[in-house]
């Protein structure tokens, strides 16, 4: 039925539950409205986290970063010795003003220490924390999520070539 009143049938949606969800935020727990956090999906690429004990300071992450957001920052030897870390005493520091959240740095990390978490948002009172995000350092610990959603696994490992060889088609009549 074509007519001017036809769109009015949309009014019935007034009585249907809205499908918008609440703001996905864990950082504002004081606001009860936002205390219902939305879970990041199982491979979500949120803010970074770096396990300093595993990281070897190789700098692969800073070399691949397409946005040139990663700078290898020197960390005092004592700090690393205390936690029993190996390798060069440098750790990646990320400029979140440039980062594109592409996760290429995660996929080329040979030690698998660099991961991404399910943090949708991240709030701080100091703007410089954002510019010099230092995943793994004490001050930034709270910002790293609890769930490491995008992490390197054999599937996504970019360092190791995974050539695929096409199988010749099975001759008909022969079973598996």
């Amino acid at each position: 039925m074509i007519g001017y009143l036809a769109p009015l049938r949309a009014l019935k949606f007034l009585f249907i539950k809205p499908h918008t969800v609440r703001v996905p935020d864990k950082v504002w727990p004081r606001w009860p409205d936002f205390a219902d956090p939305r879970e990041g999906k199982s491979v979500y690429r949120g803010t970074h986290d770096n396990d300093w004990t595993k990281c070897i300071g190789c700098g692969n992450c800073s070399r691949i970063c397409p946005a040139m957001a990663i700078e290898m920052k020197e960390v005092p030897k004592e700090v690393l010795d205390e936690i029993g870390a190996k390798g060069v005493n440098k750790r990646p520091q990320i400029d979140y003003g440039r980062c594109t959240f592409c996760a290429l740095c995660v996929d080329v990390c040979p030690s698998g220490s660099l991961t991404m978490t399910d943090n949708y948002t991240w709030v701080t009172t100091d703007a410089r924390d954002h510019r010099y995000f230092f995943p793994g350092a004490e001050k930034w610990k709270y910002a790293s999520g609890d769930v490491h959603t995008w992490h390197k696994n054999p599937q996504s490992d970019l360092l190791r070539p995974k050539p695929w060889v096409k199988k010749p088609p099975q001759p008909a009549g022969e079973g598996k």
Partner: peptide
């Protein structure tokens, strides 16, 4: 059941 990638290179460059 084939793999999801044919990657004859190493990813860094």
């Amino acid at each position: 059941d084939t793999p999801h990638i044919h990657q004859p290179y190493s990813g860094l460059a």
